[in-house]
Simulated scan of single mutants.
Amino acid sequence: MGPDLRLVFIGGGSGIASLGPALVRRGLYSYHLVAAFDSGGSSGLLRRHLGGPPPGDLRNRLLALADRSYPATASLAGFLNQRLPEYEEAAREIYARIRGQRFLEAEAAGSMAVVQGLLESFEKKAGPGFPLSGACLGNLALLGGRYLFGSLMAAAALLAGLIRAPAELALVTEEEAELAAELPQGGLVVGQDRLTRLSLAEIKDFFLLDHQGRPVRPSLCPQAREFLSRADIVVIGPGSFFTSLLSCFLVSGLSETVAASGARVVLVPGSLEDPERRGLTPVQIYQIWTQVAGEIIDTLVLDSAWPKEKVSGVETIWLDLPFISGRYQAEALLEALLSLV
């Protein structure tokens, strides 16, 4: 494993983010293509009021990659991860207090001044009446950076430098789109946060919608093509199979770019506890994957709890990976992934 190994991770949510600290501890530089369809919580509120792709998954991944061995960096990452109360009056009071804070550590003072500038940019765009209840400060800072620099990715690059994250990040698409699914009985469920309650076995079809409710295939982010052009290994997952992983491949051009990269492509669906895979076998999962994303997978990595069912056409590896709160133990999974290179 050489020092120039190029690791690219695709997906959203907390599954891949749990690998972040392990990547930092190992001194591995990594590239991340993050899902862009989150519609719940703070991200959903920001999307409804201000439009554009959601910042939540990008912020989650970014902060997971912070080098917290530096006290000032750990303090700044903790600040960006703070979430305001759900009650609007309390949220405004605490936000005003937080905005008045000044870091005593000399190293953190300059970084904090930059973050304060991002928050001021957000405030100017959002206006004084914008609801702050439940908002995450990192999301607000990213949106402030979007208004200053023209994209969430530029804002993420700035914050990555401040928190010493050894990584580059991009959304799979900069275009706004909503994840939706058609049910067998004909109903339509719209919104990533609502679809997490459903198993793929309960869904007839799924797709992306634009802001007018029309089916859309948004364009792949240009940074994604650059990340993948020199990839050695592309890791899809771990994460919620449908809303976090497969949804990324509804973006036009991602499957083709992954296939053309020449990299080893590894799919890590995650644990059997994921409700989105309820009732599906490894063969069914791979069949669904190929229907949506094509035959791009070289290796399928499954925990040993999965049925020992051979999947034709790919190398299937069962690993005894310990779980903590339903997620793979990060160090063990990373070691397994690096052994495939």
Rank of each mutant, 00 (worst) to 15 (best):
A165Y: 12
L28P: 08
R47G: 05
P166H: 01
L63K: 06
A126Q: 00
P131Y: 14
Q291T: 07
I324F: 05
H211Y: 15
E273S: 05
F79I: 11
G78Q: 02
V114Y: 14
D210A: 03
T73E: 13
P238N: 04
R83A: 12
S18K: 13
V341C: 12
R327G: 03
I317N: 07
P215H: 05
S304K: 03
F207C: 09
G78R: 02
E315D: 15
L45G: 03
L76F: 11
L280G: 10
Y328T: 06
E178D: 06
A90W: 12
D232E: 08
D274Q: 01
L250F: 08
L28M: 10
D303F: 09
A332K: 01
T243I: 14
E105V: 15
R97W: 08
L58Q: 01
A72I: 06
D205L: 07
I236H: 11
A180P: 10
P166T: 15
T173P: 09
A90P: 06
D210L: 01
L158M: 08
A332I: 14
A263D: 09
L137G: 12
K310C: 08
E89D: 06
S271M: 15
G40S: 15
V314E: 11
H211R: 09
T243W: 13
T196V: 14
V115Y: 15
E182V: 01
L119T: 10
R230Q: 04
H32M: 03
S229G: 11
M153L: 05
S219Y: 12
Y87A: 05
Y286G: 00
M112T: 15
G129P: 01
G129M: 04
A167D: 12
N139C: 04
R146N: 00
A72R: 00
S339R: 04
G56T: 02
G100C: 03
L319H: 13
L45D: 08
L152W: 11
W289V: 02
R327M: 14
A180D: 05
P3D: 04
P55W: 03
L46N: 02
K204Q: 15
